[in-house]
């Protein structure tokens, strides 16, 4: 299976990565080579094998439903690139292109 530049662009969109045209070309080449090497897995007989999601059997542990020690808002916000009061501040979510 090879990967096309168009698939690279769609994948980059899903991964929230801005890629230049030059990066798209390079990524197409490199991901193609890596995925080519993964093709060998298609030949492995996995009939009836259950997928393994974790190395150890996990039973989701439950804890008491009580509030434990917390960071607090000030410390949690201390690394924020921008804040507004007790909130993380972000640019507008929807561009106002419908106003015009």
């Amino acid at each position: 299976m090879t990967i096309t530049p168009e698939e690279v662009r769609v994948t980059a969109e899903l991964a929230r990565l801005a890629l230049s045209d030059e990066e798209v070309a390079r990524m197409t080449r490199e991901l193609g080579a890596i995925l080519g090497a993964m093709e060998r897995l298609a030949a492995v007989d996995v009939e009836g094998v259950a997928p393994m999601t974790h190395a150890v059997a996990l039973d989701c542990p439950e804890r008491e439903d009580v509030v434990g020690p917390q960071l607090g808002a000030e410390r949690a916000l201390a690394g924020a690139p921008r804040r507004s009061g007790q909130f993380f501040e972000v640019p507008r979510v929807i561009a106002h292109d419908k106003e015009g």
Binding site: M38, L41, V44, V49, A50, P51, M52
Partner: peptide, 12 residues
């Protein structure tokens, strides 16, 4: 084709 198959080979 990729992720699920890899998890099965992981079990092997």
């Amino acid at each position: 084709a990729y992720y699920l198959r890899a998890q099965k080979v992981r079990a092997l």
